Computed example of a mutant assay.
Amino acid sequence: MRIVIAGGHGQIALRLSRLLSERGDHVVGLIRQPEHADEVRAAGAEPVVLDLESASVDDVARAIEGAQADAVVFAAGAGSGSGSERKETMDRAGAVLLADGAEEAGVRRYVMLSSMGADAHSRFDGDPVLRAYLRAKGAADDDIRARTDLDWTVLRPGTLRNEPGTGKVRIDRSTGGGFIPRDDAAAVIAELLATPGTSRQTIEVIAGDVPVPEAVAALAH
C-alpha cells in the first residue's frame, strides 16, 4: 500500500511509519517543519512539508496524488502545549482538510486517530483546553463520519503511554477507561489499513489480552 500520514513527525506517526515501511508499504509523512525531515526518513517515510493550518484543499490533494496514495491517516495534533484556538485549527480543521483533500484526490480510505471522550458537545468540567480538545476531536469525527465518499475508521485510544507495547489490546465500541502504549496504538492503525471490512466503525482501544491482528480481524464485516 501507499499511505500518507498527516502529522508525520508525531510519536504515533513515527511508530506507524516504521511498522508500515518494514512490511513493505510506501509511506509519506506530512510535516510542518522541514527540520523534522531526517527523523521522518529514519522511520522509513518520505517527508513532505505541508502545513495543514495554512494549506488549501488543492495543496493537500496534490500531496496525496503525488504520493499515489491508497489511504490517508490523520495522526496530527496541536500538541499538549497549545491553547484552545489551535485545537480548532489543527485537531478539527486539519482533520477536515485532510478529508477534503482525500476526496478531491479520489482516495477513499481514511483512518482517524481520535481520542477517547471525543465529543463535539463535551461538558468536561476540568481543564478548559482539554475540553476544547475533546470538542474539536469530536467535531472532526462527526464530519468524517458524515461523508459517503470515504471509507473511514475512527480510532479512539485510551490514555497513551510510551512504555513498550505488548502486541495485545482490547477493542470494542466502548471499552471503558484505560491506557494503551503508543506502540500498540500504532500497530492497530497498521492492522486496520491492512484489513478490508474495518471501515465505517468508531472503535475504542486500550491495553488488553487479544493479539492486535486477531482483535482487528474481529471487526471485519
Score class of each variant (00 low, 15 high):
E204C: 04
V107K: 02
D119Q: 11
V154D: 10
R131A: 14
S174T: 12
G77F: 04
A139N: 01
A187I: 03
T148K: 07
V169E: 10
E103N: 02
R161D: 11
G165H: 08
L155W: 06
L97M: 05
D119T: 11
F124Y: 15
R156E: 15
I144K: 02
H121W: 05
A190P: 01
H121S: 15
A139L: 09
T198I: 00
R145V: 07
D100P: 06
I144H: 02
V129H: 05
S80Q: 14
K168W: 09
G197C: 08
A146I: 03
G79M: 04
I203F: 02
G94L: 08
R131K: 10
D183F: 11
L97I: 06
G101V: 01
A194H: 08
G83N: 14
L130R: 14
V205G: 02
L113M: 15
D125E: 11
A105E: 05
Y133M: 06
A76T: 14
F179R: 14
S114I: 00
D119A: 12
P196M: 05
S199E: 13
R108A: 11
L160M: 15
R170P: 04
G138A: 01
I144L: 10
D149R: 14
G138S: 03
A76L: 13
R86E: 13
T159I: 14
D91F: 03
P157S: 13
D127L: 06
Y110H: 12
A187H: 02
M112C: 13
A118Q: 07
D149L: 13
F124V: 11
T175R: 00
G177N: 12
A139P: 00
Y110R: 04
D127K: 07
A78W: 01
R108C: 01
R161P: 09
W152N: 03
E104C: 05
